[in-house]
Design a protein around this nucleic acid. Structure first.
Lengths: 339, 339
DNA sequence: TATATTTGCTTAATCGATTAAGCAAATATA
DNA sequence: TATATTTGCTTAATCGATTAAGCAAATATA
């Protein structure tokens, strides 16, 4: 019962007294094999519970039909949704995906890339860890000659395909919205500038203030890892200011939630005293009280487009591909925290 | 630059005028290879940017050093945390993990198993989808002779290793807690009985009521998929009852959150009018208002133990293994919703 | 000094599936 | 009827890495 040897093409071949080559072709419905033989082969394959050995065929064909995916973490709705839609598109095209998590760690990200290359994936779709600054491990993917597609967390310096939303414009939309509600001192709990998307959000925020003739106050702009804890910490600091903000725009929903907790604990009315906007449209933003205004990042589209970009690459590898930078417009979802 | 051929052992061998076999041994620090040769080999390997071809070595060795993992979804903190800890243990032992999601779909789960077997994983660690009743696809793993370890969502009928918490006892702890607070009509928004863990929670709930001499009222026991929507729906139904419950025990945090929303919307004071307990200790339980009492499932331990169970299997495959059913005690985290 | 052992490699087979090349028999075409 | 084409396979090589078996040279032991 246990550990019985796997059935191979050879076993089927010897049972039917034909060559393994014929069996292989029969399984792939080669037109040069008679219908009768195909039927027989499939019957015996089923009888012997034949499972093709992927390692062997991938080795021979030089193609594994696997796509590696690297995400910072899977436990956000954004990444989970991206993965789901990415997988759906790739499955339909005959590819399977291998998901790995970097846990926002640079070291882990490097190891994940090694693992994926080592597993001979046909391509890698990745979103960079917060820690990542050095990009040599990504260069390694490119020098391996397999497609690399980045999404959400990308890098301009890296000459690769990218799918994401327009972070710069998103900040504009947020600031415009808050200004419309009468806010004059808008604080920004941002991510680290070294990450492109967070830098863009900061730039968008600053430019939008300028555009609305509002002064830029450096004490209202902070950089952090954007965790819930960071949100709490920075909100507490902002409340210490002599001249408090009348609105807070956090570059992540987690940070926004942390800020909201502190505001609630201090009995500061949201949105009346301070308006609050997050980023990412995580499900909990609509669950907390008051519900948090946020920006939807079109996770489904990002997953789908990233997958399609990969498929595009492998379908016409002969032609030198032009780079695809696909920037989607984000959507502001207005909720109670800024009404 | 692009699509240059991969470096193989042969390339290194011909550069140094030795055999590929010697190169292979040198890379693995075989004691029968001179230090001088090893150094040379490693120098050239680095120079040519050699990456071993996993497909080839796995095919030859009959071992891929990959472990397949199937989870219903990655976007809960529970599964995400299990994965993180599982991966840490397996990485240390030289294994890499391939994560797949079933999205709670039976069909997807079957496809995932096929993919993993096809990829020649050395073992599979899985948590079953809600929909799953037929277990023949799991039998397929067993008949392939590779270890199968289930966690959280397991099945008694399947003769495999299992790691999870004591669902039956957890219900007892919850009911005792609510009784202590003076509750007499405790409703249970449960999962479907066909899933073992949910069945155990229902049994535990019923037995605990009996133990406390409380009547069993069938109108207070409902089965659902335990989503947030289900929680809302069932809570609304419970509020229609002539004889309303004074406590609700939901078998998932999402369902508990749905129930809480309905209670808040109806201005029913929690915990004063109705006490509420969830299950899973998802982070949002402490974030909503009021915060929700819940049961912690020791996700870290479950991930670690599942991984260790797998390693145990592969380390002594000669001996017929005895089954491991590891049941951890869960922990009640009391919060505002039941104080 | 003669034999035994160790060192440091090479040779050749292997893991399974795939595919280019080839060939005999069957069938189609002129 | 003679030749060309098609059908339905087989043979043999291949994808890279690994490993059992073997062998010559170097070294150790009696």
């Amino acid at each position: 019962m246990a550990n019985k040897k796997r059935t191979t093409l050879k076993d089927i071949a010897s049972e039917l007294n034909i060559s393994p080559a014929a069996v292989s072709k029969a399984m792939h419905n080669d037109s040069r094999i008679s219908e009768k033989t195909k039927k027989e082969v499939k019957r015996v394959a089923k009888k012997l519970n034949y499972q093709p050995n992927h390692l062997a065929s991938a080795l021979r064909k030089g193609k594994s039909n696997l796509v590696g995916v690297i995400v910072p973490r899977t436990n956000s709705n954004f990444f989970s949704s991206v993965l789901e839609n990415m997988e759906a598109v790739l499955n339909k095209a005959g590819y399977n995906i291998i998901i790995t998590q970097s846990n926002e760690s640079f070291e882990k990200e490097c190891k994940n890339i090694d693992t994926l290359l080592y597993t001979q994936v046909d391509g890698i779709i990745a979103s960079m860890a917060n820690e990542t600054v050095d990009l040599s491990h990504y260069e390694k993917i490119k020098s391996n000659g397999i497609p690399l597609i980045l999404f959400d967390r990308g890098e301009n310096d890296l000459n690769v395909d990218y799918v994401g939303i327009n972070d710069y414009d998103s900040s504009h939309i947020i600031v415009e919205h808050l200004v419309e509600k009468g806010c004059k001192r808008i604080a920004h709990i941002g991510g680290y500038r070294r990450t492109r998307i967070f830098n863009n959000r900061i730039r968008g925020y600053v430019d939008a203030l300028k555009k609305n003739n509002l002064p830029i106050d450096d004490t209202l702009i902070v950089e952090s890892s954007l965790t819930l804890e960071d949100g709490r910490l920075e909100m507490e600091k902002l409340l210490q200011l002599k001249n408090r903000p009348d609105a807070v725009y956090a570059a992540s929903d987690n940070a926004a939630l942390g800020a909201l907790q502190v505001l609630n604990e201090n009995q500061i009315k949201v949105p009346n005293a301070i308006r609050l906007v997050g980023f990412g449209n995580e499900p909990f933003t609509s669950l907390v009280s008051p519900s948090i205004t946020s920006v939807d990042q079109h996770s489904k589209d990002i997953g789908r487009i990233a997958a399609e970009t990969f498929l595009n690459h492998v379908s016409k590898d002969d032609i030198k591909q032009s780079l695809n930078k696909i920037i989607l417009d984000a959507e502001l979802i207005v909720r109670d925290s800024s009404k």
